Amino acid sequence: MEVVLIPPANSAPVHLPETRAVPVIRADFSDDGGWERLRDEICSPTTEGFAAAVEFVEDRSLVGLVGAAIAGCFPRAYPTRYRHPVLFVVDAVTVSLPEHPLLVVNLNEHDDTGSFRTLPRQVQAIENNLSIANMDVAEFARSTGPDGVFRGF
């Protein structure tokens, strides 16, 4: 199954394959080594033993877009038309900043919480808690720092 995403103005439609786990989308292709390091960090269990159930997707149609432009490509389709409440994006901001904060895009059609950023080592906490409905996106978004990055509780 494929979800067609609403593209930015003057862009071709973006297609996201249906994934079994929460997608981590690569939207910046400037640093292959950095992408591999981020993948390793996201896949590594936390000190408590929690692992993120994610699936990595490369999408060149998002190259050059960051933040709100990327978030605007994705419809609020969870839970009726999409199985995941969020997706994570590795964009130019992620690659360029020292902490490598990923974009967290809220896909919940019943929640108007906007996107925010998170450290790679917090993907596990976000994915795990959302997947079991222990927390919602707003709880993580409210816990971001002044710079809009979630670094943990």
Rank of each mutant, 00 (worst) to 15 (best):
G49M: 03
E36C: 03
H110I: 12
P23D: 04
V137A: 11
F50D: 15
E48C: 00
R142H: 09
R20G: 08
R37G: 12
L130Y: 10
T113R: 01
P17Q: 10
A71W: 10
F116K: 07
L119Q: 13
M135Y: 15
S96G: 14
A12V: 14
A27F: 06
R20W: 10
F56L: 10
A69P: 00
D111R: 03
A77Q: 04
I126F: 05
F50V: 06
H15I: 15
P17Y: 13
V66N: 06
D32Q: 07
N128Q: 15
R26E: 11
V89A: 02
H110W: 10
A92F: 05
S61P: 14
V86W: 11
L65I: 06
E41T: 11
E109Q: 15
V90A: 12
S115V: 03
R142N: 06
V63W: 11
H110K: 14
P45H: 12
N10C: 10
N129L: 13
R60A: 09
V14Q: 00
T19E: 01
R20T: 09
R26P: 01
F150S: 02
I42D: 12
R81W: 08
R39T: 13
P79V: 09
G67M: 00
R39C: 12
G49N: 00
R60I: 07
L38N: 12
N128Y: 10
R142L: 03
D112A: 07
E127I: 04
P146G: 04
F140W: 03
A125R: 08
V104S: 11
F74C: 13
T80A: 14
T80C: 08
R142Y: 03
S143Y: 09
L119S: 02
Q122K: 10
P79N: 11
V104M: 01
T113K: 03
R20K: 05
R60V: 13
F74A: 06
V89P: 03
P120R: 11
L87N: 08
G67T: 00
L119R: 02
N129A: 15
A68Q: 10
S30W: 00
V89M: 06
S30L: 08
G148N: 06
P98T: 11
L97Y: 09
V123P: 02
V137L: 09
P79R: 03
T47P: 00
I25L: 14
F29S: 02
G49Q: 05
T47V: 03
V105E: 07
H110P: 02
P75L: 14
S96V: 04
P13N: 01
E18G: 13
F140P: 04
A71T: 05
G33M: 09
G72R: 06
V93I: 15
R83G: 12
G34K: 10
P120S: 14
L62H: 03
A12P: 04
G67K: 07
D111T: 14
L62Y: 00
R60E: 15
I132T: 15
L38H: 09
